[in-house]
Structure formats: structure tokens, C-alpha cells
Design a binder for these strands. Sequence first.
DNA 1: AATGAATGAGTGTTCATTCAT
DNA 2: TATGAATGAACACTCATTCAT
Lengths: 206, 206, 206, 206
Amino acid sequence: MPTAKNTKATPAPTSPDRRRELLTIAAEVFADQGYNATTVRRIADRAGMLAGSLYYHFDSKESMVDEILATFLDELWAGYDAVLAAHLGPRETIEALVTESFREIDRHRSAVAIYQKEARHLATQPRFGYLTDSQRKFEKAWLGTLERGVAEGVFRSDLDIRLTYRFLRDTVWVAASWYRPQGRHSPEEIARQYLSMVLDGVALRA
Amino acid sequence: MPTAKNTKATPAPTSPDRRRELLTIAAEVFADQGYNATTVRRIADRAGMLAGSLYYHFDSKESMVDEILATFLDELWAGYDAVLAAHLGPRETIEALVTESFREIDRHRSAVAIYQKEARHLATQPRFGYLTDSQRKFEKAWLGTLERGVAEGVFRSDLDIRLTYRFLRDTVWVAASWYRPQGRHSPEEIARQYLSMVLDGVALRA
Amino acid sequence: MPTAKNTKATPAPTSPDRRRELLTIAAEVFADQGYNATTVRRIADRAGMLAGSLYYHFDSKESMVDEILATFLDELWAGYDAVLAAHLGPRETIEALVTESFREIDRHRSAVAIYQKEARHLATQPRFGYLTDSQRKFEKAWLGTLERGVAEGVFRSDLDIRLTYRFLRDTVWVAASWYRPQGRHSPEEIARQYLSMVLDGVALRA
Amino acid sequence: MPTAKNTKATPAPTSPDRRRELLTIAAEVFADQGYNATTVRRIADRAGMLAGSLYYHFDSKESMVDEILATFLDELWAGYDAVLAAHLGPRETIEALVTESFREIDRHRSAVAIYQKEARHLATQPRFGYLTDSQRKFEKAWLGTLERGVAEGVFRSDLDIRLTYRFLRDTVWVAASWYRPQGRHSPEEIARQYLSMVLDGVALRA
DNA sequence: AATGAATGAGTGTTCATTCAT
DNA sequence: TATGAATGAACACTCATTCAT
């Protein structure tokens, strides 16, 4: 769904490898300093080139975030769609989505952090319309699963379901702000504990 | 603890009311657009004055966020300290802290949103050292309570406690990103449901 | 018809005098160096200020040419419309239009020179659509008068009328490239001699 | 007289054909967009190569206009010199010069358009000193012929002769701005009509 | 002959800030 | 208290040019 189309006049000859390298660097800086606060000079510095040289590879600073976010969302949805296509039960679906989410955080930590901080702001521009689309699709998948779970008696029915949705959603994604790859726990382990908290609560069962 | 010292040089200080008015406006814009993306002119526009005129009231844009955040943290800690001074049991303490937090979100939504988005970035500057102090104190209070709860058999012991802490912390504060005063639920009701989810889980008990 | 609308967020407080001063300077530099080759820094230099300061008065370099050209065309059409409204004979109309044109060259030399050099290029942008409109109206007035003159037996009928039109038009306006106010001849005297050449030819009558 | 000296350093010079091809393309773009507004990349695009590749053929963008203008002026003067060497009467000389001029416009339309727009600006650089030389020689030829014509009673003596000169000069060359090869009229026919207007006037003789 | 990648100087523009009035 | 005008540093971006391959 989201696809950053590269509309350069000239055939945009950059080698895919160099492009990916530069985008990785850019993503890290964006995640760290914020998109607006990041100067293209800083990105270029870290890449060992001059600011202007970046424009051989990319149209604009904006097109860099664009490609970073679009790439991330493409992969995310590949994972999500696979999960949804499996038609598991509601609880298993939620478990699979959460696990998949932490895996994406593991692989695209910077992109997720950028998404968290900048998506709302960027989505106001037509170019980033796919962010809104993605969010809608996201909500449909999660909220739908929760509703199914309530209907099937798997999840509690005494909670405001939209509140539950936001709770789940934020709980998972905000983790990108502190997550460090190669940290103490694997994404799967973090997912397991998060799921355990979310589904069963942190209080000791009476 | 954190106090933005008003180091104005010559002229008579602004009336406290006008000051508060302007800070409220500034906070809303900062929360909405992000600190960096907010121009001092936009704030002035909304206040019905010219950009330069703001400098009669404040030293700098930075001192505006400073005062916004410091004011918020002062109030937050007044509430937290009262809770902690009551020496309740671990579960009750957590419940009180969460409830107090949602009340603060209700009253200082903009400030909380700013804090969420900008704190990490701002804290690198000496001037905002109190942000780091506050965070440390915050962690001590919450983590300590959780540890006490585990020790007393109130909270589960099979979870990574730091993970649980982050889970709780993020769960609460990230709500500022979607919370709207006068929304469907009161802060207390939101707190009740969040606590219910966090403590007991969203899965139906077998 | 052409009106450069000043769409600034803030009420655009610049005093009309200062504005006019700056536009005069800008027009001279544009006329001299060409629009593209003119840097806003050079304009600012001549105005005794820094480049950025120009942006207090104008939105952009583009809006400067815009205002320069629009102001000129407004005045030009005020003059032309008065001539046309007088419903003179074809020859007298041409004489009046030529005279009026040289007066405009005298008063707006820079603007005319800019128009000559840049109009075609600028007119491709929607913002400068009024240039095309003006040109069309211009052609209608001149060509129409010539045709009327041919019909009434005042002008020769053995010439390609569009060629005659271009001949007249260019002959007059290209003068802006060498005209200097306070030169040897007044605009009216130049007009008189031009008309004499154009209408009666430079060859001595047999 | 004017000759753009090709000071390439190391590699073997481009084949004359390829060179001419590229210069033709460059001239068209320069004429269309203006010299300054033309990027070297646009020229390369139209030539089906990358911007950097042009530098195998030419030293610089400047040397391209240089060669374009010098080539044109060389040809122009070949024609003019032939006319002048024929020692015709003043009227016949003017007729021959005008006709020759329209032929040059027909053959070097782009170069003429570039000359019209950029000569004054370029002539400030030493490298383009030949432009000034050419203009001086040009003025001498035309003005001299006119003066001779006045003295011999062929042209009117009641006109400012310099005004007449400029009138004639501009009248002819400005045609390059609208002239299209393969248009309705041949260069010779356009010359005939222009001469008829200039010499005899557009007014019907009484 | 031409490419891919980079340079470096410059361009228009933005914006927090200053200050005389 | 606030305005009008300006500063100056920084910013994203452009472009002619270079050069190893």
C-alpha cells in the first residue's frame, strides 16, 4: 500500500546498496533528534559526505523520511497480512500481531520511532496520505480482532473497547522509544511478557 | 524542585495572568506542532500580537517551554508526593499514582504532550537538567512501589520488573497523545479502566 | 486586471513608502542583471540591508517581480484604456498609444525592461497568468486599430497585418533597452520621431 | 574576427559533428529558457547523456555560449562584409543588410535570440569582449550607411540619426523573438515587407 | 565517450532575537 | 506593553564542475 515513488527526472542511478546505507543513517538521526531538528548536514556528516551530495541520491529531506516510513510500513503489513490471513482465534491473533510488532520494532527501530514522533504531523501532507491509510487499516485489524474476542467470550466485555485498543496499540509501539536491539531480551521474549501483562494483568491472581 | 528562574533584566515583569495566558497558548501550539516546528510568530499570531512583542514577556522561546514543563512538573510532584506520603500498600499506591497521573493529563494535557515528545531531546541541555532529575525520582517511586508489591506478593514475580515499570509508565503517559478534556470518560474513569487492564488483564479469567 | 495580491499571514505592516523604495531598487537590479541572475543578496546590498530583511517586506523574490510587473501593467492599462475610450480615428489612436507607451517607458523603464526579458518565461507560471491576459488584450487593441485603419484606407493594405503589428509593438517596447530618462529627447519627442518613421518611412519621398 | 578558442587540455577533441549537435541542442535550450536559467543537466538530458559527460566535449557552460555566439557572429560578418564590399548605394546597402540579417535569423535563430537576451550581460566579461567589438563594427556599418544616405538625399534628414539607427537595428533583430523557421513567410519576404515599412511607412501615401 | 558519485560555493528563505520608538 | 524594522545565523536545496572508472 504505501510506496514512495521516486520521481526524479533523470533515471535515479544510485545503487540500491548506497541508498539503503544512507537511509539507515538518516533514519537513525531522525529517530534520535527528531525530523525537524535534524539537518541534512548532520546526516551527510555521518555519511562522510557533504550536504549537497545527498541530493544526488534523494530528491529532498522529505523524500528520505518518506522512503524510510514507506519501507517500514510495507514490511509491517507483509507481516500483519500474513497473520491475518491465517484466520487464528482472537487471542492467538492478538498474540501473533504483538509478536510481529516487536519483531518489526527490532528490525526497524528507527523507522518506528520516527513514525511515533512524526506521523501525525507528516500525515497532514498529501504525500504522506498513506500514513493515514495505514493507520485506518491498522485500527480495523486490531479493533476487529478485539471485538471478535469479546463476542467469543475470550476478552472482557466490561471495558471500553476503544480504550482497550489504544491501550494495546500504544503499549506495544511506545516500546520503540526505549528498545535497543541486542538488549537483554529478544523481541519474542519481550512480546511474551507484554502479552502476559496485557492479557493476564500484573496483579497476582487471587 | 524544578523551577524556571525568570531572569529578566530591566523591565517590570508581566502580570502573572497575561503570562499564564501566553504560556497556555504556547503550550497548545508546542503540543500540536512540536517544539521545533513551532515558530515564535505562530504563538504571537494566536496571542494577537507580533512576534517581537513576546520578548517583552519572555526571554526566549526556550524559556517558554522551560516554564511550561517546570510548572507542570511542580504540580505533578505535589500530587505524587502527597500520594507517597500516605504510605499506602503497593497496589493502592499504584492505583493512586495512576489516577493522579490521569488527573494531571487532564489538567496539563499540552504540557504532558510536550514532555512526551521533547523531554529526551531537551534534557541534553543543562538548563533542563531537572527533567532528568524528575525522571529519576519518578522511576524510583514507581519501580520501588512495584518491587515492594512483588516482595509482598501483591504483584507477579515472574515478570522482568523493569519491563513492567516501562509498561506501566508508557501506558499511562502515552494517553496524553489522544486524550481530549471533556471527552467520553473522566480522568478517574479512564484511570479505573486502565488499572483494571493493567492489574487484571484484558483476557477473561478462566 | 493584473493585481499582485499580498497573501501574508500577518497583516503585512510594511509602510508603502519603504515598499516602493525597495521595489524600485529591485526593479533596477532585475532590469540590469536579469531576474534569474539577480540574487536577493544584491538587492539587499543596494538597499543597505541584509538579504533576510527583505523577507520582512516581501514573501519572496518572485513576489517582488510580481508586484513590479503588476504595478506597471496597471498603470499602462489605465493609460491605454483612456486612449481607447476616446474613440479616435485609427491613425490618431496609434499615435496616442505610441506616445502613451513611451511615457510608460519613461516612468517604468526598469519594469518594461524586465517585462521584455522575463515575461515569456514567467508567464508559464500560473501566478503570472495576468501577463498572458495582458498580452492578449494588448494585441487586441493594437491589431484591432490597425485593421480598422486598413479598412478605412488610412493604413496600407498590401502588408501582412500581423507582421505590421509585431513591427510596431517591438519597435516601441524594445526602446526600453536603451532608453535613459533625462536623455537627449523627451518621451513625447521620441514618440513623435518613431511615429514619423513608422507611418511615413525613413526614405525621402520621391 | 571573433573566434572561441577551444582550449581543451588532455583528451582527444570531440568529432566536429557531435560537437555541432550538442551546440545546437544547447543553443535551443539557452534561447528558450535563458542562459542563466538553463542548467547544464537539462542540456545533457536532451542530448541523452549525463551532465558530467558534457565536460568531455566542452570546458564549461560558458564556453558553450561562447562557441554558439562566436560561430553565429562569424557567419554574420561573412555576410555583412560581402555586402559592404559591394559598395552599393545607401538604400541598396540597407536593403541588402536587412535581407542578410533575416537570413541569419533564419539560420541561427537560437543564437540570435541568445545574443539579444544575454549579450549585454555577457559582454561585461573579458572573454566576451568580441561582442562589444562586433557591436561597434555593426554600428559603424549601419550608421555610416544611414549618414551616407542622408548626405546623398536618399534618407530623410529631419530625424535624429541615432534614433533611426536604433529603430532599424531593433526592428530587425527583435524579430528573432517570434520568428519560426518554416513559418508563413520566407526570410526574404519578411525582409521585403520590413524594408517596405521602414522605408516607406505604414501610412497610405496621400 | 560516457557514467556515477561527489564537491563546494552559492541561492532563496526562515526564524529567534534585538531594539529604538 | 507593544510595534516595525531589522539582524545574523542557519537551513534545505541547486548546480557547474571534477574525476576515477
